[in-house]
Design a protein around this nucleic acid. Structure first.
Lengths: 149, 149
DNA sequence: TCTATTTCAATGTATATACAATTAATGTAT
DNA sequence: ATACATTAATTGTATATACATTGAAATAGA
């Protein structure tokens, strides 16, 4: 449905203004649906993302600031997310030997298991949540990659 | 830049998985930039959105639940956002005469003034933040409108 | 070496999102 | 008319985002 109708708004000033609102609205739609997958596993979308970053390095550790760098939201707070995951025993934290300011984070067996369980489900979700053909999705990716300048 | 490079990640499983991440990442980019406009006016992007909804009805009032319906994020909390705006004297709250459960919200002169001041700036921002041609932006809007099914 | 600056992680505070629970008012059914 | 269900708004609690500050450790420069 056209976004003007969904949020019952007057026509937008121009396509650019519409696109900004459209991106915000689509994001909300996406995250709301996505949360339903992660919730039964006691994970938020952001915590899931941190686990994926850690798996990408496994079995090597990665520092908190490197996690931050790779997070989808640069303004988020890797330190606190790691703490939440540690409480759930999905990650381990170890003082870095060469630089004691840094903290080495590693995903645990439990963390890897949960990612494994979610893998199939997430792939299915990603395909089904976007009501677009393959070529449309590719177009969308190109536009988003270009959009950010 | 391609998102794989920006977040230093391995290639995605498929275009759909990439698009989901791409939308989350682009949203974060957008909101971070957008906040810089609203901050000097002591508004968050969400509060700005509520003010726009109220202006759309002005001078008629609108109930809290109608605001909620039209918000970009359906899971947000119109009641609390209205309270914040009331403290700043940008909106007024009045018990609804015909149904005392409802609360009529109206934008104040001060609220309208601030929207007025922001108008030009927001239009310029929306145009400059999206590094796309007019026809690309239109394409993007079509894809997003279709995406949500 | 000693001082100043920078870096890394953690912490504090405000706002917003997500979702459950509560309370008052209204509507409905018998 | 009374009991029951529904609706509207508020409130509570947990998580996350946004941004500033702190404190410890490392680095650079005089």
């Amino acid at each position: 449905m056209k976004i003007e109708d969904e949020i019952r708004q007057k026509p937008f000033k121009d396509a650019y203004s519409k696109a900004v609102v459209n991106l915000l609205y689509t994001h909300s739609y996406l995250v709301t649906e996505q949360s339903k997958i992660f919730k039964p596993h006691d994970l938020s979308p952001e915590q899931y993302n941190v686990l994926r970053i850690l798996r990408g390095q496994h079995p090597e550790p990665i520092t908190v600031s490197s996690i931050q760098d790779r997070m989808l939201n640069k303004m988020s707070n890797a330190s606190r997310l790691v703490e939440k995951l540690k409480i759930k025993k999905m990650v381990e934290r170890k003082e870095c030997a060469v630089d004691r300011r840094q903290v080495d984070i590693t995903i645990t067996g439990k963390g890897l298991e949960i990612l494994e369980q979610l893998e199939e489900e997430v792939n299915k979700f990603n395909k089904s949540i976007l009501n677009l053909t393959k070529s449309e999705v590719e177009q969308l990716n190109d536009l988003l990659d270009k959009l950010r300048g």
